[in-house]
């Protein structure tokens, strides 16, 4: 075999199609199937945004942040603050306030992520047990601070008027907001891939995933790279939190802890550290959640656990595991 020729591994990428093909006959009606599938793609895009940072930080830093869910909630609450002051009415103002909410969530979460990384994570690099414990502690503190600041009742976070309503194609109705979320999720996915493949910081991240020591020996400060990536991961969680909050029309302090379970399933299925795997895993989890939610609502989460079991039995390190370390 000539060097450089690497057969692309396409089989995992086909799994969402397989899942959809299996579910279709059980669902029966085509409009329902299409609606569910579009809803899944949107939910998958949001799950991807929420999970991507976690998997990125794990791949590079070997740190699994059990407080990642708390950043999702922080992002959603940051958006409620922006929406309190934002004007609304026209399409332009709605779009502007949406962008402002995303930006605010990213900035706030990035900043909280900076403090969190320096204070909690930096002292326990390389020690998984302590990492799990201390990030659980961190998630409790952030969640309780949200409760203290914003009260115990969920806050309203309805999508602006421009994103409400649905587009109707014959018998098929597609909610506008779902398309917005899907578009943004795909955009962020493409951006992440571009950053990883085309920029020096992306090269450093990919190199650091393989060999942190050699990156340092080439003259780069790996600890600063860690902090930067952790901030980016937190900001992504915050952006995901805004998207999810608007989807659910509310911000709740406990929302992150609930989502963390799905996020974990996503990154385990995708392969810890892999951005593409994360995107696929998020889509799969969302498809199962929606199809099962329609066919057997009570078993939706259990079905996703079974999906995780099935994927891991097939590929013990997930769909797209990172290259050998």
């Amino acid at each position: 075999m000539t060097p450089g020729a690497r057969r692309p591994d396409l089989l995992p990428a086909l799994t969402p199609l397989i899942v959809a093909a299996i579910a279709a006959p059980f669902i029966g009606s085509l409009p329902t199937f299409v609606t569910l599938t579009v809803a899944s793609l949107a939910m998958g895009a949001m799950l991807f945004v929420m999970a991507s940072g976690l998997t990125l930080a794990f791949g590079l830093m070997d740190v699994l942040n059990f407080g990642h869910g708390a950043f999702i909630a922080v992002g959603a609450f940051a958006a409620t603050v922006v929406y309190q002051f934002a004007p609304h009415g026209s399409l332009a103002t709605d779009l502007a306030s949406f962008v402002a909410a995303l930006a605010a969530a990213a900035v706030v979460c990035g900043f909280v992520g900076y403090v969190y990384e320096r204070l909690l994570i930096a002292p326990v690099y390389g020690r998984h047990l302590e990492q799990i414990l201390i990030t659980i502690g961190g998630s409790i503190v952030i969640e309780q601070l949200l409760l203290a600041l914003f009260g115990t009742e969920p806050l309203d976070l309805s999508p602006p008027a421009a994103f409400r309503g649905a587009l109707v194609f014959g018998q098929i109705a597609v909610e506008k907001y779902r398309l917005v979320a899907l578009g943004l999720g795909v955009l962020l996915y493409v951006l992440l891939l571009l950053v990883l493949s085309r920029t020096r910081i992306g090269l450093l991240i990919r190199a650091g995933v393989e060999n942190r020591e050699m990156v340092e020996a080439l003259g780069y400060r790996i600890d600063r790279l860690f902090t930067a990536v952790f901030m980016a991961a937190s900001a992504l969680a915050g952006v995901g939190g805004v998207l999810w909050g608007l989807y659910q029309s509310q911000a709740r302090a406990g929302m992150g802890a609930d989502l963390l379970v799905l996020v974990f399933i996503v990154i385990i299925i995708g392969g810890l550290g892999s951005v593409t795997g994360c995107f696929l895993g998020a889509t799969l989890v969302a498809l199962i959640a929606n199809y099962a939610g329609f066919l057997a609502p009570k078993l939706a989460l259990v079905c996703n656990i079974l999906l995780m079991v099935a994927v891991l039995l097939w590929r013990p390190r997930g769909l797209y595991p990172l290259g050998a370390k």
């Binding site: 190199a207 393989e210 050998a324």
Partner: peptide
Amino acid sequence: FSDLSVRENLLLA
């Protein structure tokens, strides 16, 4: 860095 190309390895250095 086996995941990077030859060019990218040298570029980082």
